[in-house]
Design a protein around this nucleic acid. Structure first.
Length: 1126
RNA sequence: GCCGGUGUGGCGAAAUGGCAGACGCACAGGACUUAAAAUCCUGGAACCCUAAAAAGUUGUGUCGGUUCGAGUCCGACCACCGGCACCA
C-alpha cells in the first residue's frame, strides 16, 4: 500500500532515484498551494497563485473576457468499485493529465476535474446481504479510489469533486428530470418546449382529458409496456442493458414482463442525435456505432386491405406495413404480422377467419408450424409458443424460421392480387408497424421463410449481369412490375422507389416514412440505491391514478432510511417498505421506483463547472465560459457546392452584386431559417439567388456538415466577403493550426481584421497543397458578447506567444468539452443518453451548445502480460499500487503512455515499466551531482527517518551552468520541443516520450549543460513526469538563483525552425528507386550541384554504366532518384 | 451476415508517397568491480558470399495495380480484434 518512505521493497535492486520521497513531497505541495485550481469567471484569484502571476490577472474577480481561453479535459466518470483502480483507468487519466499540464503551460485556463458515479448495484447488493446502508460501502470505495488516483499525481482540481449520491448533487439530477417531465417535443419547431405551450386537440375538454393528453406528450411519461425484468437483480433493465438475452451486469437471465414504468422520449431526438454526429469530432467507429444504434431507415408505409372482410362499421380493414423497398411491392407474395400484432385475433375484432379457406393457391394443410381444424387454434398455439420463448431463443436459436398461416388474405394495392397473411416471430412487434410485406425474391429472411413453407417467389428486380436474382437484395432494375396505370419496369431501384412512393401517396395507399431502431429509454429501476423520483401519485374524482411533479422547493427528495434493502414480498421496490415515507398527508403516495445509474452520469460534466453552486445546477456565465461555442456564426461550408477557392471566387464573381445575403449552415430547417431571418433582418431571397436551388434544398434538408450550430447569432457573409478570402489567406494577422480533419488532413486557420470584422478562413491542406476552403467565419471584433471565441483566442495566443505561423500549439476554440477520453464500453449507453439530456437542456435554454462533447477519444484496452483480457480468473490483473510501490508514479504514468498509441489495444509488460523507469533515473543523474547523491544514499541507509532532509542536500550537477548553448545543443533542444509539441497536439504520447529520451541520451554526453536548455527540457518533461520535474526544477532554481517561478505555469517553450536547419545535407541517391548511395553536401548546394554530385556518386556508378539516363527526380534537399533505361 | 478497426524484427512499436525498424524491452559482447547488481559503451531483419568485411539479393498479412519511387495511395482477398445482428 501507498508510498510511505519505509515501504516499497526493492525486488529488482536499488532505486533509480528517490521517487518515494519526491512524489509525496510534491503532491503535498500542490495540494497546499491549490496549484491546479481552475478558475471560474467571477472568482477572485489569490494574487500569489501562479495562475494569476502567469496571466497578470488583476486583484479582483476575473471576468470571462479577462480569463485566458478555456480548455476542458474530461475523464469518464468512474464507478468506484470495491476492487479499486485497475491499470486501464489511469491510461485515460494520464493522457488527459499530460494534456492538462501541457495546455496550462501553453496559457490556457484548464478544467480537469474528477468525481464519482457512485450509485450502483454492487453497493446495493452488499447492503441487501449485510443490512448495512449502501452509503457506507460507497464511501469506503470512494476513499480508496481517491487515494489511488491521488497517488498518481494527477493535476485534478479536487475542489470540484462531485459524487452522484450526494443530495447536493442529485437534487439537480431530480431537477433536470423535472425539466424533462415538464417538457414536450414540438414537431413543428423540432425542439423541446415547456409543456405549457402544448395545444390540446378539440376533443380534449375536461380536466381529466387534458391531463391524460398532456401526460401522453411529456418527454418523461409512464408506460405499461412489456419490459425486461431480471429476477436475479430484482429490477427491470433498459434495452441497452440487455446483451444476448442476459443482463449486461452479471449475465443473469431476463424475461419480458408488462410493468408500469417511466420512459424518456429519446426517440423524439433520434434525428438530431443522428445529424449532429456530423458536428462533433469523434472517431468514425464510435459515430458509426451510434448511427447503427439509432438505426435510421427511410422507406414507405404501405397499406394492405384485408380481403373479404370488413369491420363492424363497414369499412375495410387496412394493415400498414413498413418497407425500405417499396419498389419491390409487385414481388410481395405474402404478408407477415408479428405474433403480438393487435389484429391477430378472431373476427370480428381481428382478422382470423372461422374456417380455413378452400379455394386458393395455398392448400389448407400447409398452415405452417402448427396444424389444426380452424385457424384460431393454430394461431393461438403459435402465439403461446412465441410468448413462452425467451428472447434468447427467439434470436440465437432462430436459425430455423417458424410461423403459421392466419387463414386470411390481403390485397396487394398495386395489382389487387390476394396474398396470404401469416404470423411469424421473425417479425418484431416493436419495429415499424409490426407487420411486413414479404418479398422472398429479394429479401433473405423472406426467402428462407418462403422456401420452408412453399410460398411463391417471384422476381421483380434484375441484378447486374452474372448474378442470380433469387434473393438478390442489392440495387438493380425493376422488372415484372406493371399493372393498370403504374409501371416500374426498366427503372433503376432508386428511381423505382421514388415513383412507386409518389404513386402510393397519390392514391392514398401509403406514404414516405422514416423508422428508427432506437426505442424510448426505460428510466425506472426497482432499486434502493438511486435517485428517488420527485413524483407523487394521486387519484382523480373517478378514482383513477395520476402522477404529479413535486415543486422544486421539495428537492432534493431523499431516500428513506431502511433496515432491509430487498424488494417487498409482493415484488414492489424496496422504497415501498418505508410506508411513512411513501404515504403523504392528503392521501397521495410517492413514486417508489428510482432512477437508473445513467441519470447521474448524464450531466456530471456540467456540475463540475460550478460544483458548489446551490441556486442552480450551474451558473449561466460559468456555463457559457466553459461550454460556449467559439463564434457567433459559423456561416459558410463551401465544400457543399464549390470545393476550391478559385472556383468559389469565380462563382462569387459571376453573380450580380446585390447586397447582403444570408448564408446558413448545417442542420437548419425552414422554421429556424425563419427565426434567423427575423433575428438578422436579412433576406433569405438573396441566399436563394446566390446558391442554386439544389444547394439550398441540400442544406435545408439537413445535409449540412456544420461544426457548430448557434441559431441566436448567425451573421451574413456577403459576396464581398468571399472576395476577401485570398487576402485573408495571403496576408493574415494570425495563422493557427486547426488540427487534423477526419481524413487526416491539416486544417489551417487564417484570421484577419478588416473594417471592424474579424474574418477567419479555415482551409484544408494536404502536403502543403491547398485542398479546400472549409469554413469562413465573420464576427464583430468588438461588443459585449466577446465572451469566448476567436477574438479572445487571438488575444490569449498573442499573450502566450503560441499563435505564430510556425507553431502548432494553437488549437481551434471548441464548444463544449474540448476532449473527453474514455473506453468504448460507453459508446451507445452513456454517450447517447448524455447527448439526449444535453439537447433537452439546450432546447430549454439552460446550456449554450447542442452537443456536450466536442472531441472524444477512446482509449484502447490494456491486456494482461499474456495478451489476454485482464481478469481475476486468469490471474493476470496488474494492481497499480504494486507498480507504484516499486517504480513510482512518474514511471507508471510514463509507461502507460509509452506502450503505444492511446487508442490501440495493447498488452501490459512490467519489464517495459523498467525501461521508462531507467529513463527517469537517467534524467535524475543528468541533473544531480554524483558525490552528493552518493552521500544522500548512504545517509538514508544510516538514518532513514531523516531521508526527506537529506534529499534537500542533494546538489545540482556542476555541469549545469549559465552558459551559452552551442548550436548543436540548441538543435537538440529545439528538435525535442518541436516533436513533443506536435505529438502532444496530435495525442501521440508514445512518440513525444521517445523524443524526450532522445534528448536525454544526447545531453548525457555534453560536458557542459547550459541551464537555459536544461530548464526548457524540464518544462517539456513536466506534463509526463511532474514529480521528478518539479524536484529538479526546484534544485535548478535554488542553485542558480533564478526566478523561482512555478513549473506548472512556466510558459511552454517555442521552437525556432531556423535552429533546426542542417548545415550538411545527407542526400540518398537512388537508381530506379533503389538506394545506392548517400552523399553529403553543404546545405547551400543548389539543385544542380546535388544532381551533379549524385551522378558522380561512386557507389551509383556500376548501376549507371552503359545505361541511358532517362530522367532525374530531385526532391529538393531530400533525395535524388536517377531513372535509367535497360 | 453487416459495420468498424488492426496486420511491420524475438516483443511493445516508429516512419508529411522519398534512407523501413526511431524510441524502448529482451538478448549478446565489452568497460567498471574480488564478484554480482546497478551503471556506461557496442552490436544485431533475413538470405547470399566471406577468415572478417564490403558489395549484392529479399524483406512491412496475401495477390495485383498506380508511380521515377509504395509500409503509406487504389482494387481484390486472408487473418485477428471490437460492435451490431430476423430492425423489413
Amino acid at each position: 500500500m501507498g508510498l510511505s518512505p519505509s515501504s516499497a521493497p526493492m525486488a529488482s535492486g536499488r532505486r533509480q532515484y528517490p521517487f518515494h520521497l519526491i512524489e509525496p513531497k510534491w503532491q503535498r505541495a500542490w495540494e497546499e498551494q491549490q496549484t491546479f485550481r481552475a478558475w471560474n469567471p467571477g472568482e477572485k484569484i489569490p494574487p500569489n497563485h501562479p495562475f494569476a502571476r502567469r496571466h497578470r490577472l488583476p486583484e479582483k474577480p476575473a471576468t470571462a473576457a479577462e480569463l485566458p481561453r478555456k480548455f476542458y479535459l474530461l475523464d469518464m466518470f468512474p464507478y468506484p468499485s470495491g476492487a479499486g483502480l485497475h491499470v486501464g483507468h489511469p491510461e485515460g487519466y494520464t493522457a488527459t493529465d499530460i494534456l492538462a499540464r501541457y495546455r496550462r503551460a501553453c496559457g490556457f485556463n484548464v478544467l480537469h476535474p474528477m468525481g464519482w458515479d457512485a450509485f450502483g448495484l454492487p453497493a446495493e447488493q452488499y447492503a441487501v446481504k449485510t443490512g448495512q446502508h449502501p452509503r457506507q460501502a460507497t464511501a469506503a470505495n470512494v476513499a480508496n479510489f481517491k487515494r489511488q488516483i491521488k497517488s498518481l499525481g494527477f493535476s485534478y482540481d479536487w475542489t470540484r469533486e462531485v459524487n452522484t449520491t450526494d443530495p447536493g448533487y442529485f437534487r439537480w439530477t431530480q431537477w433536470i428530470f423535472l425539466q424533462i417531465y415538464n417538457a414536450w417535443f414540438n414537431p413543428e419547431t423540432k425542439r423541446a418546449e415547456p409543456i405549457s405551450t402544448l395545444k390540446y386537440p378539440a376533443d380534449c375538454v375536461s380536466e381529466e382529458q387534458k391531463r391524460a393528453y398532456r401526460d401522453s406528450q411529456r418527454l418523461a411519461y409512464v408506460s405499461e409496456a412489456r419490459v425486461w425484468w431480471c429476477e436475479e437483480l430484482g429490477t427491470v433493465l433498459a434495452n441497452e442493458e440487455v446483451i444476448d438475452g442476459k443482463s449486461e451486469v452479471g449475465g443473469f437471465p431476463v424475461v419480458r414482463k408488462p410493468m408500469r414504468q417511466w420512459m424518456l422520449r429519446i426517440t423524439a431526438y433520434a434525428e438530431k442525435l443522428l445529424q449532429d454526429l456530423n458536428t462533433i469530432d469523434w472517431s468514425d467507429s464510435l459515430k458509426e456505432m451510434q448511427r447503427n444504434w439509432i438505426g435510421r431507415s427511410e422507406g414507405a408505409e404501405v397499406e394492405f386491405e384485408v380481403a373479404d372482410f370488413k369491420s363492424a362499421d363497414g369499412k375495410p380493414i387496412r394493415i400498414p406495413v413498413f418497407t425500405t423497398r417499396p419498389d419491390t411491392l409487385f414481388g410481395a407474395t405474402y404478408l407477415v404480422l408479428a405474433p403480438e400484432h393487435s389484429l391477430v385475433s378472431p373476427r370480428p375484432l381481428g382478422i382470423i377467419p372461422y374456417v380455413w379457406p378452400t379455394t386458393d393457391m395455398l392448400p389448407p394443410e400447409n398452415t405452417g408450424t402448427y396444424r389444426g381444424p380452424v385457424p384460431a387454434d393454430v394461431v393461438q398455439l403459435y402465439r403461446m409458443a412465441a410468448a413462452s420463448k425467451s428472447d434468447l431463443e427467439r434470436t440465437e436459436l432462430a436459425k430455423e424460421k417458424t410461423g403459421v398461416f392466419t387463414g386470411a388474405y390481403a390485397v396487394n394495392p398495386v395489382n389487387k392480387k390476394e396474398i396470404p397473411i401469416w404470423i411469424a416471430d421473425y417479425v418484431l412487434a416493436s419495429y415499424g408497424t409490426g407487420a411486413i410485406m414479404a418479398v422472398p425474391g429479394h429479401d433473405t429472411r423472406d426467402l428462407e421463410f418462403a422456401q420452408k413453407f412453399h410460398l411463391p417467389v417471384i422476381q421483380v428486380v434484375a441484378p447486374p449481369a452474372g448474378q442470380d436474382w433469387h434473393g438478390f437484395v442489392g440495387d438493380g432494375v425493376a422488372v415484372n412490375s406493371e399493372s393498370g396505370d403504374i409501371s416500374l419496369n426498366g427503372l433503376p431501384t432508386p428511381e423505382a422507389k421514388q415513383k412507386i412512393t409518389a404513386w402510393l401517396e397519390s392514391k392514398g395507399l401509403g406514404k414516405k416514412t422514416i423508422n428508427y431502431k432506437l426505442r424510448d429509454w426505460l428510466f425506472s429501476r426497482q432499486r434502493y440505491w438511486g435517485e428517488p423520483f420527485p413524483i407523487v401519485w394521486k387519484r382523480d374524482t373517478q378514482g383513477h391514478l395520476y402522477h404529479e411533479a413535486l415543486p422544486e422547493s421539495a428537492l432534493p427528495v431523499l431516500p428513506p432510511e431502511l433496515t432491509d434493502y430487498k424488494p417487498t414480498a409482493t415484488g414492489e421496490p424496496p422504497l415501498a417498505r418505508a410506508q411513512d415515507w411513501v404515504n403523504l398527508p392528503g392521501g397521495s403516495q410517492r413514486e417508489t421506483n428510482t432512477m437508473p445509474q445513467w441519470a447521474g452520469s448524464c450531466w456530471y460534466y456540467l456540475r463540475y463547472l460550478d460544483s458548489q453552486r446551490s441556486q442552480s445546477f450551474c451558473g449561466p456565465l460559468v456555463e457559457h465560459y466553459w461550454m460556449g461555442g467559439p463564434t457567433e456564426g459559423l456561416l459558410l461550408r463551401p465544400e457543399q457546392w464549390a470545393n476550391r477557392v478559385r472556383e468559389l471566387i469565380a462563382y462569387a464573381r459571376s453573380q450580380p452584386a446585390s447586397g447582403k445575403r444570408f448564408i446558413t449552415f448545417g442542420t437548419v430547417g425552414p422554421a429556424e431559417a425563419q427565426r434567423l431571418r427575423e433575428a438578422t433582418g436579412l433576406e433569405v431571397e438573396g441566399f436563394r439567388r446566390f446558391l442554386d436551388d439544389q444547394a439550398i434544398r441540400h442544406i435545408l434538408s439537413g445535409h449540412g456538415d456544420a461544426r457548430t450550430e448557434t441559431p441566436r447569432g448567425s451573421i451574413a457573409v456577403t459576396e464581398a466577403d468571399f472576395l476577401l478570402i485570398p487576402e485573408v489567406i495571403s496576408q493574415p494577422d494570425h495563422v493557427a493550426y486547426g488540427g487534423r480533419t477526419s481524413q487526416g488532413k491539416d486544417a489551417i486557420l487564417y484570421e484577419k481584421q478588416v473594417d471592424g470584422f474579424l474574418y477567419c478562413v479555415e482551409e484544408v491542406r494536404d502536403s502543403n497543397r491547398l485542398l479546400a476552403v472549409k469554413t469562413m467565419y465573420k464576427r464583430k471584433t468588438t461588443g459585449a458578447r466577446a465572451l469566448s471565441g476567436l477574438d479572445q483566442t487571438s488575444e490569449t495566443h498573442r499573450r502566450s506567444g503560441a499563435n505564430t505561423p510556425d507553431s502548432a500549439t494553437a488549437v481551434k476554440p471548441t464548444p463544449g468539452v474540448d476532449l473527453y477520453v474514455g473506453g468504448t464500453e460507453h459508446a451507445v449507453l452513456h454517450l447517447l443518453y448524455a447527448r439526449f439530456w444535453h439537447k433537452v437542456l439546450y432546447d430549454l435554454g439552460h446550456v449554450s451548445t447542442p452537443e456536450p462533447f466536442f472531441k472524444l477519444v477512446n482509449q484502447g484496452l490494456i491486456l494482461g502480460e499474456d495478451g489476454q483480457k485482464m481478469s481475476k480468473s486468469r490471474g493476470n490483473v496488474i494492481n497499480p499500487d504494486d507498480i507504484l510501490a516499486e517504480y513510482g508514479a512518474d514511471a507508471f504514468r510514463l509507461y502507460e503512455m509509452f506502450m503505444g498509441p492511446l487508442e490501440m489495444v495493447k498488452p501490459w509488460s512490467t519489464k517495459g515499466v523498467e525501461g521508462v523507469y531507467r529513463f527517469l533515473g537517467r534524467v535524475w543523474r543528468l541533473f544531480v551531482d554524483e558525490p552528493s547523491e552518493t552521500a544522500f544514499e548512504q545517509n538514508c541507509t544510516a538514518e532513514p527517518g531523516r531521508a526527506g532532509e537529506f534529499l534537500e542536500k542533494v546538489q545540482l550537477s556542476g555541469a549545469i551552468q549559465e552558459a551559452e548553448p552551442t548550436p548543436a545543443q540548441l538543435k537538440t533542444l529545439h528538435a525535442c520541443i518541436k516533436k513533443v509539441t506536435e505529438d502532444l497536439d496530435g495525442l501521440r504520447f508514445n512518440t513525444a516520450l521517445s523524443a524526450l529520451m532522445v534528448f536525454v541520451n544526447e545531453a548525457m554526453t555534453w560536458p557542459t549543460k547550459p541551464a537555459g536548455v536544461m530548464r526548457d527540457f524540464l518544462i517539456l518533461l513536466q506534463p509526463f513526469a511532474p514529480h521528478l520535474a518539479e524536484e529538479l526544477w526546484a534544485k535548478t532554481e535554488a542553485t542558480l538563483n533564478t526566478s523561482r517561478s512555478a513549473l506548472s505555469y512556466a510558459p511552454w517553450p517555442q521552437f525556432d525552425p531556423a535552429l533546426l536547419v542542417e548545415d550538411t545535407l545527407e542526400i540518398p541517391v537512388q537508381v530506379n528507386g533503389k538506394l545506392r548511395d548517400v552523399i553529403r553536401l553543404p546545405a547551400t548546394a543548389t539543385d544542380d550541384q546535388i544532381k551533379t554530385a549524385a551522378l558522380q556518386s561512386d557507389k551509383a556508378q556500376p548501376f549507371l554504366a552503359g545505361k541511358q539516363i532517362k530522367k532525374i527526380v530531385l526532391v529538393p534537399k531530400k533525395l535524388v532518384n536517377i531513372v535509367v533505361g535497360a
